[in-house]
Design a binder for these strands. Structure first.
Lengths: 341, 341
DNA sequence: CCTGCCATTGACATCGGTGTCACAACCTGG
DNA sequence: CCAGGTTGTGACACCGATGTCAATGGCAGG
């Protein structure tokens, strides 16, 4: 391990001067700076993070605590987004996955303290309220994809209401007047918010919201798990005499089953039925025939924004600290929705 | 921040004694130990990672370098598996996602050095050879889901050959004699290995391998991207007069399109056609109607095993350091394959 | 009672950086 | 030519832990 002192000896200056060069302190003569910089390069000197951290009493590492990000495949994009944001500040992150276990979570909070992380992004798999177990943690905390039940922390969440609006609006603009909805479990906040979005779009388009056309595609089992019943839900909708010309899905998995139901009934997508997904899981949306039009969950952007807010909280960046940021859910148009004449 | 000294003062002993207690050094009187331990708890003392790391000149953090794990959704399970392994050693990981950019990769190697990570798990999205740009890195490196082109590092990879064998074997056991294959791009190592597995199983079952029944489901564009053409490939296979009774897929996305092709031709899965996936992306396998039988890529296990090997390399655990570990790909039976009478 | 060993504890140096402050050399304007 | 300022550099202490080694006290054996 080559240290400051080694470089200093080689360069014939004091360690402090090398430190200055490494840290871009302007109070160094240009000639000295260049000479030292050259030697730093030549010797492959890398400042010791531990020593620096010890002296400065805080780290350049940010903690990322997640509950079970991995189970919804694309929510890892929160991780990617977070990292992209940190990279610009040349920081890294320590990652901690709790699998939803409070015990593990406690453990990881302690670890974050030990590492003196510069802040924590707390991300969840579902858009939901959380109540951080009062972790006596001095640095900033930002919630990603979840929000504080007691409004004690800033949060960055997808604009589910806007997403629902976008779904409905697009179909209405294509001329659809009878729109079915196969939604997520009604207990989810996303479902409620998107419902509001649908209603707004319907009202704007002069459509009546018909509760009979909205059916849950997932049902919650007594054990807390969920069953995907979108296939049956879709059959129910599509066998009605006044069957909808299009269906809005709570997520892309539901759309897969809608396709299957349509195939079963001999209906063609999009000729006989338009289908609109949510989440934009490319593994599904780009794989279905025809490819699925969907509204994307902006996970990457959520992660990135969370980092932004974090540096504001820590006073490293200018700008206000909003209690909540809504990140828009963009429409991704593919081939599953058709214009009605 | 509560320090050793604070605890020592409070306990009326020297800092060194507190250190001994915290580190379970047996050379401490039982009474002293208990008294100090109590105060440590009461004061919420957490040892400063930076100071410890500096003194010990290595960290308890392991680096995880990935190329683009996020684009294949379930390969994040490598991350989860790695973490699960580290947790048992009460370690954490620094995560670095290079997006396949060598420049970023260099940067992150430097950072890992700065952090004095205890080792690195280098994971890739596809099972492929890699050539680490000779990072002058003293600690252990283990490759996950990839292997060293120059055999210079240990690697942990899925047993693709075994996986292919498992796919074919299961169908043969169900009585299938005409088996179509819609494979991944032929340039992938996985495709070659699984091909070998198919042949072994075919030979064992007394089947002839017919090249005309194997068609790529992905084709590589000139720009390096890939197009999913499994739908057309499947139509080709299924329109043959001697159409196969079952199809082995290179991954689950291909299976989605096989289902679509079958629906187009009025064939029912599994009555008219059995379909066997690969990867076991639950988002797909549990969503399709009927649910897809598939062979799982054991990403979680790969990550976990990599951590194991790493601690052997670093001499923290007993056991030999194998140059390569093959992790088996287990069969996950669902409803898409049927027994032929 | 003395010697030597063991169990326990503490003083001190040290890891690799950075903050503080002193100091030398060089200006600048009166 | 000098007071007062500016610029560039280094000496030194310190961050919080742990390794080394010495010191202390108790006890067994001779």
């Amino acid at each position: 391990m080559v240290t400051l002192k080694d470089v200093a000896r080689e360069a014939g200056v004091s360690p402090k001067t090398v430190s200055r060069v490494v840290n871009d302190d302007p109070a160094v003569n240009v000639k000295t700076r260049e000479a030292v910089a050259e030697i730093v390069r030549r010797m492959h000197y890398v400042p010791d993070h531990a020593a620096r951290m010890m002296r400065m009493s805080h780290s350049s590492v940010v903690g990322l605590m997640t509950d079970a990000v991995a189970t919804t495949p694309y929510s890892v994009d929160i991780v990617r987004g977070t990292q992209a944001g940190l990279r610009e500040q040349s920081r890294t992150m320590l990652i901690a996955n709790t699998d939803g276990d409070p015990q593990q979570e406690q453990e990881y909070w302690r670890m974050f303290r030990a590492h003196k992380v510069a802040g924590v992004v707390y991300a969840t798999m579902y858009h939901r309220p959380v109540d951080l177990g009062a972790p006596d943690f001095e640095r900033g905390i930002v919630l990603a994809n979840c929000y504080s039940a007691r409004r004690s922390h800033s949060s960055v969440v997808p604009d589910d209401e806007g997403g629902g609006y976008t779904q409905a609006r697009h179909l209405i603009e294509l001329g659809h007047r009878r729109i079915g909805i196969v939604s997520l479990s009604p207990v989810l906040r996303a479902t409620v918010l998107r419902g509001a979005g649908y209603r707004t779009a319907f009202a704007e388009g002069g459509l009546l919201y018909d509760p009979a056309l909205e059916i849950p595609g997932f049902i919650t089992r007594p054990d807390g798990g969920e069953d995907l019943v979108a296939y049956d839900a879709a059959l129910g909708l599509l066998r009605r005499p006044d069957r909808p010309t299009s269906i809005i899905c709570g997520n892309d998995q539901i759309a897969v089953q809608i396709y299957a139901a349509a195939a079963t009934l001999g209906l063609s997508v999009p000729d006989d039925l338009s289908v609109m997904g949510f989440d934009d899981m490319t593994v599904i949306t780009q794989t279905l025939k025809p490819m699925l039009t969907s509204v994307a969950l902006p996970y990457f952007e959520i992660g990135r924004t969370a980092v932004d807010i974090l540096s504001r909280i820590n006073g490293e960046a200018e700008g206000p600290v909003p209690p909540q940021v809504l990140v828009p859910c963009p429409l991704v148009t593919r081939q599953s929705c058709r214009q009605l004449v």
